[in-house]
Structures are given as C-alpha cells and as structure tokens.
Amino acid sequence: MSTQAVAPLKLSDRLVANKHIAIDYMAWILLVLLVIVGFAMKGTLFISVDNLGNIVEQSAIIGVLAIGQFVVVLTGGIDLSVGANMAMMAMICGLTMPFGIFGSVAATLLAGIIIGLIAGVVIAYGSLPPFIVTFAMMFVCRGLALTVTAGESVSAIDSPITAVGYGWPHWAIWLIVAGIIWYILVKTRTGTKIYAVGGNIEAARVSGINTKRILVLVYVISGVCGAVAGMLALARNGVAMPTSGSGYEMQTIAAVVLGGISLFGGEGKFTGAVAGVVFVTMLRNILDSNNADPFWAFCVIGIVLWIAVILRGLIERIR
C-alpha cells in the first residue's frame, strides 16, 4: 500500500513535544538536585544505609497515599482528606483488632471503600467541586477519629499487625499497591478511561464512557489507599493516633505535582508520581536531620508546592 509521507515534525512541534518530556521528568531532575544538596549538607552520611532505610521507610506511607491522590488528580480532582482518612483508618484497624487480623483488615478496607464512595458519589452526582467536598470530608474523618475513643490513642502493640514491622516490608506493600494501580492505569480499559475523563470529559462522554462512575471509582481508590496507609501506620507505631497524618494531604499533592501530573487532569506519568514521593520524603529527611526547626519542613514543602505548580504552568504555556 503506497503511503503519502507526512512532513516530519517542525521545530516548533518538537519544542512542544519536549515540553512534555520536561514536565514528565521534572521530579527526576529535581531529585538529582536534591541528592546533591543532601550531599552538600550531610556528606556521605546522606547515603548511608541507615539513612536510605529511613527515607524508604518514611516514603512508604506517604507513597501509598500519594498513589491514591495521583489517581484522583488524573481526573482533575483533588483529595484533601487523605491524611485525616489515614488517621481514622488506623483507629478503625486498631479498634477492630479483637475480631482477628483478617476481620480487622477487611473491616478497615471496607471503611476505606465507604469513605471513598461517599466522597465520590457526592462529587460525581452532585457536580460539586472536589476540594470543598474532600475538605469537609477531612474534618468528618478527623472528627470521627477523635470521637471513637474520645481523643485517646488505640494501642495495637500486641496485635499481629505489628509483625509487618517497618522499613522494607512497608516498602514492599507500597510496591504492591503501586503495582496494582499501575496495572489498572496502564493495562486496562479503566485506566484509559481515567485519563480520558481528566483530559477531555466531553470527548470521554461522547465515546460512551460512564464518566460519573469513573469519578466515583477514583475516590474509592483513594479511600482504599487511605486504609492501607492507616494499617501501615498502625503496624509501624503500634498505636493509632487520631491526630496523625496532618499535613499529609499537602505532601501527597506536592509529590503528585512535582511528578509532573497536571492539576487539571488527564496527564501525568506513574513514575513521575513515584519520583515526587521520593523527593518529598528526601526533602523532609534532609530538613529533619539538619538540626533545623522541624517546622521549617512545613514551610518548605508548601513553597515547593507553589513553585512546582507555577513552574509547570510556565512550561505548559510555552508555545
């Protein structure tokens, strides 16, 4: 079959193409820069096995939450409730431990699904802005976590869940969650639908995609990720604290944005999100152990978020 050759991409087109590459690898580039900064500030201590282990361990919980956040942001939404949700899930897991480890895990996962379902249904079928619904959800979850035990922590020191321990096993669980989500996003129809809903909801609708169902699904995924993160937190600390996880919504969003994922939805590589998570944890690691006031970390991550969003917008506007 004879085919007519189409002119190769013009220079301007190539620039546009590279623009996406720049966004996709923003987190990796920043990560390398951060490693250099880490070296400069802490020397070889920075890459000691201990410290790397720390980073890995710290990244697992944020990582699991960030995966959920990532999926939500792909549809152009946002989940501000991930931190509070995690705290509540840890409480639920701890409180249901008397029913046995399997019962407890099942109950926690179910709770995660229900929380996600509520947020998703309200957002999709109520056509409400996700940030306001999940912001309210954040207080609902926090309030529930504080209420069930009147503000007390739940101890699970003797329960089998602590056998998961911490460190690498956490990372393994993160990898499993990440693997499942990766599979859904890249290998299944559902994944394409998620991207399509975020990219051009009208085109998605015209193609016969049930957009509302996809919207509900992503919040359910985020809810389940919250449940897994909650169980990990319980396993690590042996106690569930109702006030834990504050500021995590921020860190997950920062990780996702740094990873090159558009806040308007539809684009973003899975690997970018992972790099973003490592970046955020590494940043915290550097800030935490540098004798600085630990609260500087809050400021720095907030500023990093701003810069990431503005930077992305600027690259995006290159014509």
């Binding site: 946002i78 921020m250 006031d293 907030g302």
Partner: peptide, 25 residues
C-alpha cells in the same frame, strides 16, 4: 501565578502554620 486558589492557599496553610511553630518554638 495562575495557581488554583485551593492549591495556593493549601500551601499557605502549611507555610503559615510552619512559620507560626518556628516563631513560637
């Protein structure tokens, strides 16, 4: 900056809180 309001102010929520802790120790 064309940053969505909820993202810009979410960042400020953290920055202001961090600064408040830093100033008051």
């Amino acid at each position: 900056g064309r940053v969505p309001a909820f993202i810009a102010t979410l960042g400020m929520m953290q920055v202001a809180m961090g600064l408040a802790y830093v100033i008051s120790k």
